[in-house]
Amino acid sequence: MSRLAPGHRGCAGCCDAMAANFVLEAVGDDAIVVSPTGCLEVMTTPYPESSWEVPWIHSLFENAAAVASGVDAALKAMGRKGNTKVVAIGGDGATLDIGLQAISGAFERGDDITYVCVDNEAYMNTGVQRSGATPYGASTTTSPAGKQSFGNPRPKKNMPAILVAHDSPYVATTSISYPKDMIRKVKKAVDIEGPTYVHAHAPCTTGWKFDTSKTVEVGKLAVETALWPMYEMENGELSNVRKVKNRKPVEDYLKSQGRFKHLFTMDGGKDEITKIQAIADWNVKHYGLE
């Protein structure tokens, strides 16, 4: 199995490590990986050690997609492209906040890269700050629950939709809790020429506050409550939507994590949960999950 070498500094139960392993399993040895700054980068490359066994490069926080474009261009120019896949693996903040410009440019240009976003819904490496991917109602250190706050007041930025709008031939959502799904989708993405995107939901034991053993379990609840829809968009057309049978109420997902705990204890928390349920209901309708 292609994966990260052990000995990395990821937390016990780390979602980024799992995500990287599944991507490596999907792409194999003939790949060059680009990572932005973040948990994955920091925990795998403390000089003079590295967990990566494929060629790997880290430059800065906001430019993984641009660096990947450069690698792709260099391989083409020097006639060394062959079947080598250029894959960027980065976190939500690095991808859809600070890195938004670079990924937009790469996708608009049609560069032959696959970008996998490992979405643990906050800037985890710097200590769990809110990002554009933080879901409605989540408590982070810069959107904390408090006497006058129910946590993050904004919904998740819909990054897959942004890249579909760039005419990407393949955009997919997946979850590290469904490794075979993720491996299949990443493999499909790298085999399609042009800029492709896989957005992987990644429950973070440290940031979301749940026991280290529950990483996969929490991720499944996200899917089973329809808060995390799993689908593919091929040339802009929705396909392979993962239906949700016996949909669970969002409370089941929310109560599994400390970052939503305040919704169950505060006055008015119930109304917030109703709003979150509405998000799930909207997903069901919009993506045809039932």
Binding site: P6, G7, H8, T44, T45, Y47, S50, W52, E53
Partner: peptide, 14 residues
Amino acid sequence: GGVVEPGTTRVNKT
């Protein structure tokens, strides 16, 4: 350039 050999985190027994 600080280039690092692959798989070398194995020295760190977690």
